[in-house]
Amino acid sequence: MSETRSTIDVSELAPSALDHRSPIWIGNALLLAIETTMFAILVATYMYFRGNFHDWPPPQVNYQPINLHPSPDLVWGFLNFIVILGAAFFMLLADRASLRFDKPSVLRWTGCTVAFGLLAIVLRFREFHGTQFRWDDNAYASIVWAILVMHLLHLLVGVCEDSLMLAYISKYGLDDKHARDVRVTAVYWYWIGLIWIPLFAIIYFGPYLLKMR
């Protein structure tokens, strides 16, 4: 028993896509939507707490001498800001290189991102110190630490992902799927950099811009 059926033969279609047409790209974008929502609520919390204090940031009275305007240490903050944007920029180069299937460049630039990412993680601990507060000093300190920690988590995830990719590609080479994965990870890093721009501004300039009530 045989029948004639109309068919659509898709065997000639590409076996995968390197860009936003691939499911993993969409999945990653949705993940970033979730994370962005989370940061939006963290920022809302920061703003909400502003209303509960007379001075912003609240004076640091737990240590001597008392600091009446203990704003976070801008020098280290700015340095790390540059490093984080640098890490994202190297991922842009890796992204471009993976479009050309240029394995050495992909390895080189991803490696740079890992190095800069690690540096950013170290500097982040200096930033904690620079807040001049411990997380349990008051609500202001809690939320500033929370924002720094949540962003740190993403730096850690980004570095892990990139290291895994480095290991895989240097061992097995750069195939279609991993070129795509490099590109998706790059999007993740752009987001890490982009989201840090407003967060950085709020943490480091909030104490000046929101000083007056």
Binding site: R5, S6, T7, I8, D9, V10, S11, E12, L13, A14, P15, S16, A17, R21, S22, P23, K177
Partner: peptide, 28 residues
């Protein structure tokens, strides 16, 4: 019509475009 030409030996499906759902690429 039905779709043919997808691998039966790998877990392969068809990805289509977001709006029109036209055939786009294969996805393992």
């Amino acid at each position: 019509p039905v779709i043919t030409g997808l691998s039966t030996e790998k877990r392969e499906v068809l990805n289509t475009t977001m709006l029109e759902a036209a055939p786009d690429h294969r996805y393992e």
